[in-house]
Amino acid sequence: MEEYYWYNSCPVCNQGRLIITNDITNDRLYLHCEECEMGWLNPGDADNNKNGFLTLLVEFETANPDLEFIKEKEWLSLAKYSFEE
């Protein structure tokens, strides 16, 4: 089982969770909607539903970050919820 950390519900589809995801190609975290595949580099933009991008149209490799990595990237306050899968 792997633990996933997420921030809020998606402002676009209102169904998916915004999962904190590691873009390993560009060495950054972003929020990724598990339902509609939208992404945000800035959590404030996700809150205001602006500057989102369709992750299916962008080429980069991703990984699920652990809580320590999220803390190192200073996104710990965004890891409000978690689930295992």
Rank of each mutant, 00 (worst) to 15 (best):
residue 2 E to A: 13
residue 5 Y to R: 03
residue 5 Y to D: 03
residue 5 Y to W: 09
residue 6 W to H: 09
residue 6 W to A: 02
residue 8 N to S: 13
residue 10 C to I: 09
residue 11 P to D: 11
residue 12 V to H: 12
residue 13 C to K: 08
residue 13 C to E: 07
residue 18 L to H: 04
residue 19 I to A: 05
residue 20 I to C: 01
residue 21 T to N: 07
residue 21 T to I: 02
residue 24 I to E: 10
residue 24 I to D: 08
residue 25 T to M: 09
residue 26 N to Y: 10
residue 26 N to W: 07
residue 27 D to L: 06
residue 28 R to H: 09
residue 28 R to P: 01
residue 31 L to Q: 04
residue 32 H to D: 10
residue 32 H to S: 05
residue 35 E to V: 15
residue 35 E to M: 14
residue 35 E to A: 11
residue 39 G to I: 03
residue 39 G to M: 07
residue 40 W to D: 07
residue 41 L to Y: 15
residue 43 P to Q: 10
residue 44 G to Q: 15
residue 45 D to K: 05
residue 46 A to F: 06
residue 47 D to S: 12
residue 48 N to V: 11
residue 49 N to W: 06
residue 49 N to T: 08
residue 51 N to A: 05
residue 54 L to Q: 13
residue 56 L to T: 15
residue 56 L to A: 11
residue 56 L to Q: 14
residue 58 V to C: 09
residue 59 E to Y: 14
residue 60 F to V: 09
residue 60 F to L: 09
residue 60 F to N: 03
residue 61 E to Q: 15
residue 63 A to P: 04
residue 66 D to S: 01
residue 66 D to I: 02
residue 66 D to G: 02
residue 67 L to C: 01
residue 68 E to R: 06
residue 69 F to Q: 08
residue 71 K to L: 01
residue 72 E to N: 02
residue 73 K to P: 00
residue 73 K to A: 03
residue 74 E to V: 09
residue 74 E to G: 02
residue 75 W to L: 01
residue 75 W to E: 02
residue 76 L to F: 11
residue 77 S to H: 12
residue 78 L to F: 08
residue 80 K to N: 14
residue 81 Y to C: 13
residue 84 E to V: 12
residue 84 E to S: 13
residue 84 E to D: 13
residue 85 E to T: 14
